[in-house]
Computed example of a mutant assay.
Amino acid sequence: MSGLNIAFFGSSLVSAYWNGAATYYRGMLRALAGRGHRITFYEPDAYDRQAHRDIPDPPWARVVVYQPTEADADAMLADAAGADVLVKASGVGVLDAYLEAGVLAARRAGQIVLFWDVDAPATLDSMRHDPDDRLAPLVPHFDMVLTYGGGDPVVTAYEREFGARRCVPIYNALDPATHHPVPREKRFACDLAFLGNRLPDREARVEAFFLEAAQRLPDRRFLLGGSGWADKGLPPNVTDLGHVYTADHNALNVSALAVLNISRESMARTGFSPATRVFEAAGAGACLITDAWEGIGLFFEPGHEILVAEDGAAVAEHVAALTPERARAIGEAALRRVLADHTYASRAVQVEALLTGRRAAADRVPA
């Protein structure tokens, strides 16, 4: 089968500003393009993302930026009409419900229409509890739901609770072309680094795992990267870096003695959802410390490829006990594992099999 023409409606491909899914989109779609599929990414000019671009338009995707109006959204849907695959991702941030209804209404014979959920816990919570949620009745009409994590709990919820025809997790992974070991940089030298935007269901866990560890280790240096922390009261040994552009992620990851992953509250409850930055840090050869969540062992071996902490006290204990040699050994083991088992190239093979299988089935059904 020749390459598919894929039209993707998402938050942003070119900017990671208030857009944690950016590197997931880039890795996944770049890998699909590398397998001969043609990608068009439609993103709204919203949340000042275009003013904070991390990358120019990539050669492997056509990027179309539109104004966040229904008229412009309609024009984008018309532009995408000839695609073999229409994808609406969660969390575009503007006109989400309008676009979800729009891609289904625009479906033509033989076309595959997917909902790709990059924050399944939040989406499921909204469908369960928000009386104004408009996605739930549409779920059975999508050919498939893909998620960037969640394991059996998310699959069961989508298929049994909301009637999805099929739900398949496509986990975060590593793109070795963008995230890899680089020389250390003095400006990012520290004992522990955490990178994540300030979000309502993350802040309390950052306080519990990161800031408490900093308070327990007043003689150690901590770096906090991400948007929204400027007015947060921080211990004196914590430096707020503000938004860290993706071009600096590798240097930040390799320059810290250890890098901390903190799942958002909704992700921690659901489990089986390693964040994109777990794989990015591992790809740089960083020593990772993560909060505990169900399913870690499916991705990395605790104690050998990753360190696991139940709370801020445990994070502090890990940091205090780490030597540069031990940190380097853990980081090297994580790098070997992620290159062997968790690249976007392997994820793209999985997605391609799902899409071509669904396309073949659709072609067998008379119009």
Rank of each mutant, 00 (worst) to 15 (best):
Thr123Ile: 08
Asn261Cys: 05
Gly357Asn: 12
Thr156Trp: 04
Tyr25Asp: 14
Gln215Trp: 12
Asp143His: 09
Glu100Lys: 09
Ala33Phe: 08
Glu301Gln: 06
Leu241Arg: 08
Pro324Ile: 03
Leu241Lys: 09
Thr147Leu: 06
Arg202Cys: 01
Val315Thr: 13
Val63Ser: 03
Tyr25Val: 14
Asp201Ser: 04
Glu203His: 09
Lys186Tyr: 14
Ser255Cys: 00
Thr178Lys: 02
Arg128Pro: 08
Phe115Pro: 01
Lys232Asp: 01
Arg160Ser: 14
Lys88Ile: 13
Leu13Val: 14
Ala83Met: 12
Ser263Cys: 08
Lys186His: 15
Leu95Trp: 05
Val113Arg: 00
Ile170Pro: 10
Ser126Cys: 09
Leu104His: 07
Pro121Glu: 05
Asp45Ala: 12
Val155Tyr: 07
Val63His: 04
Ala189Phe: 13
Gly149Asp: 01
Ala21Cys: 14
Thr147Pro: 03
Arg336Glu: 06
Leu252Gln: 01
Asp311Asn: 12
Thr343Lys: 04
Gly151Met: 08
Gly285His: 03
Leu307Lys: 09
Leu4Cys: 04
Leu29His: 01
Asn5Glu: 08
Leu146Arg: 02
Glu70Gln: 15
Ile306His: 02
Ala22Trp: 03
Ile262Arg: 00
Leu124Gln: 00
Arg202Ala: 07
Ala367Ser: 14
Cys190Glu: 05
Asp117Gln: 02
Met267Cys: 13
Gly225Ala: 10
Ile262His: 01
Phe188Ile: 04
Glu159Arg: 10
Phe209Cys: 04
Thr276Ala: 15
Gly82Thr: 09
His249Asp: 05
Tyr245Lys: 15
Ile330Asp: 03
His180Leu: 13
Ala316Gln: 02
Ala204Thr: 05
Phe209Met: 05
Pro169Arg: 00
Val319Gln: 04
Val244Thr: 06
Tyr98Gly: 07
Ile112Gln: 00
Thr40Arg: 11
Glu332Arg: 11
Cys287Lys: 00
Asp72Gly: 11
Ala362Glu: 12
